[in-house]
């Protein structure tokens, strides 16, 4: 198992797209270090011949016939968008 000392809070926060404050970073690094230390014991389990389980039961892809179904109206789909204009969602400029 990896050592908790490798836990780089800046890198992980960046991956998670979370702008943490310095206080949060210090606190989370310490608390999650404790949790990761606890998790270390999983390394003791022999899993060499064990298949991983993504679900408790086998879950298979489900196919549906391609039949149009009634969906949300544009107004309903956009009703919770925090910034919008002319039935479009507004985002910061992404190309120069």
């Amino acid at each position: 198992m990896s050592q908790p000392t490798e836990f780089n809070i800046d890198h992980v926060a960046q991956l998670a797209r979370l702008a943490l404050t310095p206080t949060e970073k210090a606190q989370f690094a310490q608390q999650l270090g404790d949790v990761l230390h606890h998790i270390e014991q999983l390394g003791k389990v022999d899993v060499s011949s064990v298949e991983p389980a993504a679900h408790a039961f086998a879950v298979y892809n489900v196919w549906a016939d391609d039949i149009p179904q009634p969906g949300l109206t544009v107004d309903a789909a956009l009703q919770n968008a925090p910034a919008q204009r002319d039935h479009m969602i507004v985002v910061p400029k992404v190309v120069e």
Partner: peptide, 19 residues
């Protein structure tokens, strides 16, 4: 889930889940 830790944590946990 991050690169370099996935096998040690997530994949291992999924195997223990089977057990």
């Amino acid at each position: 889930l991050s690169s370099g830790y996935y096998d040690a944590y997530y994949l291992r946990a999924q195997k223990v889940r089977t057990l």
